[in-house]
Amino acid sequence: MPKTRAAVPEGRRPTLADVARRAGVSTALVSIVMRGAKGAGAATRERVMEAAREIGYRPDARARLLRSHRSHLLGVQFGLQQPFHADLLESVYAVAEPAGYQIAVSAVTASRDERRAVEALLADRCEALILLGPQAATARLAELAAQLPVVSVARRLRPAVPGVEVVRTADDEGARQAVDHLVALGHRAIVHIDGGRAPGAADRRRGYRAAMKRHGLSEHVDIRPGGLTEAEGATAARAITASRPRPTAVLAFNDRCATGVLDVFLRDRVAVPGDISLVGFDNSRLAGLAHIDLTTVGQDIPTLARLAVGRAIARLEDGGEPPAGERVVAPRLVVRGSTAPPR
């Protein structure tokens, strides 16, 4: 007769002792198997793992960490409303777990600022922090770096903050690629909807200006206030639709901003790309949806995650101060259906 899970009382979580009884071995031997330590043969390991599967035993990772001198936890601060951060977070998990580290996440929301998000990670005994698009003052970053390794992702730090490593995309190059693409299509009146003080915004402004100047279009430089969200993109779009003459192309700060622009254009019967071409930034999953089909500057998310996690783990395993300099990752323009030659 096959074994069942009836060996464990209903409602109680199976323990190592339950697995040991099921497999007919000692609890100490089960612990060796579950930790992947030496001291158990292949046949015994298989018997123990089969017993664990039969009764539904799952190791309590947090309890094991609390018993150890290290937590092997990497804390990740991210923006809850940022699709780009969600994509990054997925890749961070994919890199960290095979390396033997777990991820603790803490979100920044409209009602929960970065300080609270980070304090929650510190309370979880995280050994290092990976901050996605942090907007904290450099003094605050330096304060954190004095406590544990810190990696800032997607934000250039000028001046550099001692102890804080930076992994970012070459945002200025991304903006240049977008302008080059639009100019090659025949556009001259190209508006840039700005990201304000958001991480990466200054570099994207600089890249836009430099590219326009290089193409002899300095007189057409037009930077409009914007931001990270759909609402801020929509506000900028309403000003653009009311302007005369209208630009023939728009480079938005990011894909969320571009989505807000697209919504207003559609409502005002401004055809994209027929009347105005539109480019976003990030290549988030949002951009690839069929009804959005947004040309955008893609950030290499797997590489950003690999570098960020790799640097955090290297600091923990090797110790010492981080090497000088940033890790800067090249962007790549992704052309879809929102750009075309001007009429």
Rank of each mutant, 00 (worst) to 15 (best):
V150N: 00
G24M: 10
T248S: 15
A184M: 10
R158N: 12
V335C: 11
L66I: 12
Q299N: 11
P134K: 03
I190A: 05
L121R: 00
L316I: 01
P247H: 04
L141A: 10
F265Y: 12
A258C: 09
R205T: 12
G319C: 09
A234T: 07
H69W: 07
T229A: 13
V261F: 06
L316F: 07
G298Q: 13
R197T: 15
G39H: 03
P331E: 07
R332K: 15
P98Y: 05
P159M: 08
Q147E: 15
D318C: 13
V279P: 00
G200I: 00
P342H: 07
G274D: 14
G195K: 00
A314P: 02
A137T: 14
L289N: 00
T44S: 11
R188D: 10
A146K: 09
V279H: 02
A94Y: 04
V334P: 03
A312C: 04
A271H: 12
A123C: 05
A234Q: 10
Q102C: 05
D263E: 14
L316C: 07
D124K: 08
T295Q: 09
G11P: 12
L251T: 04
L89A: 03
V221I: 15
D203G: 13
A160S: 14
G298A: 15
R204F: 08
A99C: 08
V191H: 03
A123N: 11
V108Q: 10
R311A: 09
E54S: 13
D282W: 02
R53Q: 15
V108F: 04
S68A: 14
L144H: 04
D180M: 03
A117H: 02
A258Q: 03
V153S: 02
A201V: 09
P9N: 12
E119C: 07
R246A: 12
T295F: 08
G133H: 01
V151L: 01
L266C: 06
P59H: 06
T229V: 11
S152E: 08
R21P: 06
G320E: 11
G325N: 09
G75K: 00
G310Y: 03
E114A: 07
R267L: 11
I193E: 06
A7T: 13
Y101V: 03
I313W: 01
R12A: 10
P134T: 06
